[in-house]
């Protein structure tokens, strides 16, 4: 559905996107995960024909983003980082406007508007001006707008940025509905790990304009070497005992704790506790954040916050 080939975007001496190659398949939910300034939005803007690449190209729905921008635009829907509807108009009026910009056939317009409003749960608010909507409702209206013309590809650029936790979860629910009910390929950018983990079939971790890891969420986490079990014990024989189990991949001692890497902590822990006299035991599964830290040496939240403040400054 999307083929990206050697895509580069430079701003003066800064390289925002650095020779990107990526294939995204039909009906896939693909997550571009990275801190702010990693090149996620720049990539999306190029794929959406809003920005000309410095070099390289891509095809979206089989159309070249440089040679056939109008066809690319007809093929895609997009939800920008900041809501972009006219807040003097009602939700319905915004959708009507865009249905005409996208040449949705006249006889199909009303039905389609009702359909997408229903999908995002805004049908009862359609005749209210957008300025009376909450942040979450505005985002949902953007999703509805992006779906009006039945696009093949839907771009969601940080769809939950700046939303409170409740609205974020509602938004996830609607994105999930979108994925389940509309036959559409979704490209989502985010710096929220749990968002990527929950919604995406595959994730590309992008850092300094390059894809540095590409796999399913489970695959990325498995790459870290399984779960971790931490035991506190006075048993001096612990190394010998755990050594006899195949599922234990690594043993380390730190801060008086025995730290074990195991394939499946939920199954390993009861077995271990049968053989070892432990004062306390805990286990954890790796998160995408652990993956990110291992790949970049930085925590994505810290990396993100700097960028977020910059963006606030930019809007002032």
């Amino acid at each position: 559905m999307i083929r990206i080939r050697d895509l580069v975007k430079r701003y003066g001496t800064i390289t925002a996107v650095d020779g990107l190659n990526l294939d995204i398949e039909e009906n896939e939910v693909f997550g571009l995960l990275g801190s702010n300034g990693a090149g996620k939005t720049t990539t999306i803007h190029m794929l959406a024909t809003l920005l000309k690449p410095t070099s390289g190209t891509a095809t979206v729905n089989g159309y070249d983003i440089i040679k056939e921008p109008s066809k690319v635009r007809s093929s895609i829907g997009i939800v920008f980082q900041a809501p972009s509807s006219d807040d003097m108009l009602t939700g319905y009026e915004n959708l009507k406007l865009h249905s005409m910009l996208y040449s949705v056939p006249r006889h199909a317009r009303e039905n389609r508007i009702t359909e997408v409003l229903e999908l995002v749960g805004l049908l009862d608010r359609k005749d209210d001006q957008v300025k009376t909507y909450s942040g979450g409702m505005r985002r949902r209206l953007e999703i509805a707008r992006g779906l009006l013309h039945k696009p093949k590809v839907m771009f969601l650029d940080e769809p939950t940025l700046g939303l409170d936790p409740g609205s974020r979860e509602t938004m996830w629910k609607y994105i999930q509905t979108l994925v389940d009910e509309q036959k559409v390929t979704v490209i989502l950018t985010t710096h929220y790990m749990e968002e990527a983990d929950m919604l995406c079939d595959r994730i590309g971790i992008i850092d300094k304009g390059k894809i540095i890891a590409l796999d399913t969420p489970a695959g990325l986490k498995a790459g870290l070497g399984g779960d971790v079990v931490k035991l506190r014990t006075k048993d001096r024989d612990v190394d010998r005992i755990v050594g006899q189990f195949d599922f234990v991949q690594k043993v380390e001692h730190s801060d008086g704790l025995v730290v074990l890497s195991v394939k499946n902590a939920k199954r390993a822990l009861p077995v271990l506790l049968q053989h070892i006299e432990a004062e306390s035991a805990e286990f954890s599964s790796p998160t995408l954040n652990d993956v990110f830290i291992q790949l970049t040496g930085r925590n994505i939240k810290e990396a993100a916050e700097g960028g977020f403040m910059e963006r606030i400054a930019q809007y002032d």
Binding site: A48, T49, L50, S70, K71, R73, S74, I76, I78, F80, A82, P83, S84, S85, D86, D87, H98, L101, Y102, S103, R145
Partner: peptide, 14 residues
């Protein structure tokens, strides 16, 4: 400023 322009520019409109 309110990104409305961007939403129009990304539509298939000349």
């Amino acid at each position: 400023k309110f990104d409305f322009l961007k939403s129009v520019m990304v539509a298939p409109v000349s």
